[in-house]
């Protein structure tokens, strides 16, 4: 489903953020991407959601070749990738439901479908009762769950989470990982980048460990 083949990313004077990374992730897998800050986890995810392009190598996601995709087609690819960030990235002037609905509005779905799917996604993350709350009226854990709902509402091919627990306390972090695990069990291929290795131990999932831009080891 996701094939990363010899991918490198350089910035400036040939300083490698990623060096010759290769791995394959199958449909429905849940994978942790671990490593210290600056190891290249976020860079790798940015390549996967096309915020940047690799300097070398090839990334294949389903039928898309991400390394050769034209700028015009990027939005259409992003509709198949759900992304969660450490800082939630919710639109402050939109309610929880409106934030989730944005993903479907962009696709031009009907009002009725948007309402139905938005409520389903909010129900999945346990926040249907707060659908009309604005981000500032939500706790950190709740805001992150809204961003999860936004990422999965369109049933993406792959769900990417970049340090999703970075701004949460331990209790909320565990609850969020439970939620992501549940979403994965429903069939979504999930890649979670985190430096909090202790949180990943419970799940006994495949782990890709990055050290200074190099894929150091892979555990299953």
């Amino acid at each position: 489903m996701l094939n990363v083949e010899g991918v490198s990313k350089y910035y400036g004077q040939r300083q490698a953020a990623l060096s010759n990374i290769s791995f394959r992730i199958d449909k429905g897998e849940m994978v942790f991407l671990t490593g210290a800050s600056g190891a290249g986890k976020s860079t790798l995810l940015r390549l996967l959601y096309l915020e940047e392009k690799p300097s070398a190598g090839r990334i294949l996601l389903d039928r898309f070749d991400l390394s050769r995709i034209s700028k015009r087609k990027i939005p259409f690819l992003r509709r198949h990738v759900g992304v969660i960030f450490q800082d939630f990235r919710l639109i402050p002037e939109r309610t929880a439901a409106e934030n989730v609905a944005l993903t479907l509005e962009v696709l031009g779905k009907s009002g009725r479908e948007i309402r139905r799917k938005t409520d389903e996604a909010l129900n999945l993350v346990g926040l249907l009762g707060k659908r009309n709350n604005y981000p500032y009226q939500l706790s950190g854990g709740e805001a992150q769950r809204v961003s999860v709902a936004r990422a999965v509402v369109n049933e993406p091919l792959v769900l990417l989470a970049d340090e999703p627990t970075g701004n949460l306390d331990e209790q909320n972090s565990r609850e969020l990982l439970e939620l992501l695990s549940e979403i994965n069990m429903r069939g979504a291929t999930t890649i979670i980048a985190t430096h909090q290795v202790q949180l990943t131990a419970k799940y006994a999932k495949r782990t890709l460990n990055l050290v200074s831009g190099i894929l150091e080891k892979e555990t299953r």
């Binding site: 959601y49 992003r78 509709r79 990235r89 639109i91 002037e93 962009v106």
Partner: peptide, 16 residues
């Protein structure tokens, strides 16, 4: 700007 970034992230086209 933040809204625009998020819109891009969820696949909004330039025209949208």
């Amino acid at each position: 700007r933040k809204t625009v970034e998020i819109m891009q992230l969820v696949g909004a086209t330039r025209g949208y």
